[in-house]
Design a protein around this nucleic acid. Structure first.
Length: 204
DNA sequence: AGCACGATTAACT
DNA sequence: GTTAATCGTGCTC
């Protein structure tokens, strides 16, 4: 399979998010070992056409970039990795046009390669619980602060996404995003979460 | 300089 | 169902 290029990412988050389902996130460890999983759940965060008050880029600093959110405003095809709840890392891909806070959160994977290494990093938890949540998959794939801003399209990169054939539309489910807390309506209920129907590795 | 809270998880009752 | 863990970020004073 070939690595997704910047042209794939340089579209709106609501288009890229469902399109990423079924494709494979790959992580190359420093020792050369490959860890990977098929993307089964994503969420779009986007201020392209209208504000999205659930998006970090809109919530903070009146919609202007901050040190934390600046990569969200940058060119598509790079990783936006941020820290939350004092202990968890979240992995996103930056999408859309430069200058917009536009990204897709990868929420869950179905493990493919390097399962033993992932289980070790996840404290020996069962297969089902290795990557069925955004902080879990970051831990399983050894993704953290060091990867904020890395280019996912570069041939020598340590994180990338492999292409896969498009899925039939009826395999993709949509619903409200998770964990938005005090975010006001209508953003709280926008159906910008996408997942693969009946896949056991979807979070929740 | 200080503070409230978060795109969560795991371990409780 | 409830809650502790744990700290960077952005906002207020």
């Amino acid at each position: 399979m070939t690595r997704l290029t910047q042209a794939f990412y340089a579209r709106g988050a609501q288009v890229v998010a469902p399109d990423l389902l079924g494709k494979t996130l790959v992580r190359r460890l420093p020792d050369g070992q490959l860890l990977s999983g098929m993307i089964v759940e994503t969420e779009a965060y986007c201020d392209a056409d209208a504000p999205d008050l659930a998006c970090h880029g809109d919530r903070a600093n009146n919609g202007r970039p901050t040190p934390r959110t600046q990569v969200m405003f940058g060119p598509a095809g790079v990783a936006y990795v941020y820290f939350t709840y004092g202990m968890h890392w979240m992995f996103n891909v930056v999408t859309g046009q430069e200058g917009q806070a536009n990204a897709v959160l990868i929420r869950a994977l179905q493990p493919v390669a390097g399962v033993e290494e992932m289980a070790a990093r996840r404290n020996g938890r069962p297969l089902r619980e290795l990557t069925n949540g955004p902080a879990k998959l970051a831990q399983a794939l050894a993704i953290d602060q060091a990867h904020n801003g890395v280019n996912l399209c570069h041939p020598d990169g340590v994180i990338w996404i492999d292409n896969a054939p498009a899925l039939p539309p009826d395999a993709i489910m949509t619903g409200p995003r998770i964990g938005l807390g005090k975010t006001p309506e209508p953003w709280l209920s926008l159906p910008w979460r996408y997942w693969l129907k009946d896949n056991p590795y979807v979070s929740k």
